[in-house]
Design a protein around this nucleic acid. Sequence first.
DNA 1: GTCTATATCAAGATAGAC
DNA 2: GTCTATCTTGATATAGAC
Lengths: 182, 182
Amino acid sequence: MENRKTQIIELASSLIRKKGYSTFSYEEISKHFSVTKASIHYHFEKKEDLGLAVLDRLYQALLNYRSVLQQSSKPAEEKLYDCFIDLTRHFEKNDISLTTSLKADYCMLPESMKQKLQEIVELELSTIDEIVAEGIDDPAVNTRALAITILSTFEGALQYNRAMQKDFIPDIMYGINRLLRR
Amino acid sequence: MENRKTQIIELASSLIRKKGYSTFSYEEISKHFSVTKASIHYHFEKKEDLGLAVLDRLYQALLNYRSVLQQSSKPAEEKLYDCFIDLTRHFEKNDISLTTSLKADYCMLPESMKQKLQEIVELELSTIDEIVAEGIDDPAVNTRALAITILSTFEGALQYNRAMQKDFIPDIMYGINRLLRR
DNA sequence: GTCTATATCAAGATAGAC
DNA sequence: GTCTATCTTGATATAGAC
């Protein structure tokens, strides 16, 4: 069952978002599939291997997402708002983002995962930066700072959603609109 | 040593920020003070008791902070920027904020801590909202949404700092200034 | 009031049977 | 490819000595 490997990655990905890297366990993955812990260890010898597989999958998905965006011929502003919708949807489905959860657990990650996480974060930032820059002509504007502000805001808001059992996305969209308007 | 109790709360507070509530342990607290785990259990019978003590301390500190702000006679804009400086300093010293870390661990917290956390988050939001509102006359502006955006941005940025070993505060201050300016 | 000793459980991981 | 069995470690927690 080559498929089992993918199933494990998907479940791990969801568990990391919910509970964090150091708190999710082979035990709960094995129970979910009604197999033993040992068979999970067969697919991913160490927890670190599974963690890296989760990160690799995310990295590929992001690369793919960025290239779709780049090939789109929509006007920049529309692209950016599509992007916000994607972020919102992604977050509704997924509680909080994988990178947010891993950043919280950062000091407990193995070195290999820290490095991969940095690559992913850098890719996220530059993807948003590219779209923001496309929509803003003024060369005096620091678009990378805006991209960082936007992503920080989204990720922060998701954590508010989780703790307050309320949807703060409309509030931060109000803020982001104010931030971007001429 | 009634002082020991306070020392434990302070250490626990710092460990929760670094590693999260479910990952910090009585073991490491006891090692730090060169005593046994059992003596930590003497001061705080259950982990939940220690967690609540940490939250109570934060709640009191916040109440105190807010009342100092309210009594200040500075102009609103200055107050707000003092507040940003406090946030930045606090965050430099403390890696990420306690509430950010606890929001990431939210689903593993005992019910009592979830409730206390919500009270604290609400207090943080209303404190910032009050200052923002003081500085903005226009009744059409949704100051609470701005407060949420600002806090989300700060908390998100801290997690970026941690993972990227870089200081993103100047970037988000650029964004927040743009957000607040007339 | 602080300790030792211990109980209990779940974690990550490995060896080797089938 | 999946299993049983087992090891080791570290977690929360309790009982009871001093």
